[in-house]
């Protein structure tokens, strides 16, 4: 005898007050559901500032890029770009991870072109999410795209068959990326600091964050200084870009940027380790680069906010090399 069990229990409705949700997408951030802003109490102690990190890795898909991916996806859906087509995107991992999850939820698949130096953790995570991963050397196309091989490859995949198979999310050129930060990250920071923020620090990557947040904050208070952190050419800081070697994204708005601080890998990784060991913040190396930038600010009594794009859990393979024999018994 077989028994058919049917549930007669009505699902519980979303109730944010007890953190119960009907759909993972309801955890995506907005001004009423901001990512945490956490004060740095040790690593900038020598400066006369109060510094906070905005912990973007506590987003549901694990990084700052949940915001851009959400807006990119919504834009593609609104424009009808996804009718009969799947998605292709170039990414250093985090945008693709969020896009892969959102695409899966929408019944679509993601093809991602990803620079070959991106850590294995991210590549595997993408495959776990069902994405097709095209690992791409940055210098794949040395004649026309000396450091943007993944971006060029995504474009050529989108262009095949007259563009009938794939929609290119195009985070580097798509204003939806900027709008995500103008409408969410910026207002969150303004509210979380009670409008008292004086400096905003973020890394150069797609530049959606610094352009969107910078634009919003400067509209609220033109005196706020917006500082970009840029790695050196040949760097090993995933997610960040040096525009001395990579093409500047079309969405970058220099009018909202007051200064650019260049950071060496060594300084970024040292700051990352200090965040792990002195602040209890398990962050990735791009956060270390941002914090190294924050340490250059010494402006008495001012509030500084930096972006912490993602967590250190995606970079354990990097740190295996960086740590050497640290933490192993010396017998």
């Amino acid at each position: 005898m077989t028994t058919t069990v049917t549930s007669e229990v009505e699902p519980l409705e979303t109730d944010r007050s007890v953190r119960r949700y009907e759909d993972i997408r309801q955890l995506l951030p907005d001004v009423d559901n901001p990512t945490p802003l956490v004060q740095l109490n040790q690593v900038v102690a020598g400066n006369q500032i109060t510094a906070y990190l905005k912990l973007e890795w506590l987003n549901p898909f694990g990084s700052l890029k949940d915001r851009a991916a959400t807006y990119l996806m919504a834009g593609m859906q609104e424009r009808g770009d996804l009718e009969g087509r799947d998605i292709v995107e170039a990414s250093s991992g985090n945008t693709a991870i969020a896009l892969a999850a959102l695409a899966a939820l929408a019944g679509k698949s993601l093809t991602v072109t990803i620079p070959s130096e991106v850590p294995a953790e991210k590549r595997t995570m993408l495959r776990m999410l069902g994405a097709e991963v095209w690992e791409t050397p940055d210098d794949l196309c040395p004649v026309d795209h000396p450091k943007d091989g993944a971006i060029a490859l995504a474009r050529s995949i989108a262009a095949q068959d007259g563009g009938s198979r794939f929609a290119l999310a195009n985070q580097y050129e798509n204003e939806d990326n900027v709008r995500a930060h103008y409408e969410t990250t910026g207002p969150e920071i303004w509210r979380q600091t009670e409008g008292r923020i004086s400096y905003f620090v973020a890394g150069f990557g797609t530049t959606g964050t610094i352009t969107g947040v910078g634009r919003y904050l400067k509209e609220r208070n033109p005196a706020i200084r917006v500082i970009a952190v840029e790695p050196q050419p040949g760097h090993r800081l995933p997610g960040l870009k040096s525009f001395q070697e990579a093409k500047q994204p079309g969405i970058l708005d220099w009018d909202v940027i007051d200064d650019v601080l260049r950071v060496d890998d060594e300084d970024a990784y040292e700051a990352t380790k200090q965040l792990h060991r002195r602040e209890g913040l398990i962050v990735g190396p791009s956060t270390g680069a941002v914090v190294h930038g924050i340490r250059q600010i010494d402006d008495h009594g001012k509030i500084v906010v930096g972006i912490s794009p993602d967590s250190g859990t995606k970079y354990t393979s990097y740190f295996e090399h960086i740590l050497g024999d640290e933490g192993q018994p010396q017998i």
Partner: peptide, 9 residues
């Protein structure tokens, strides 16, 4: 019919 860098890849 494919554009670079797809043939290279």
């Amino acid at each position: 019919g494919l554009l670079c860098p797809l043939p290279v890849y």
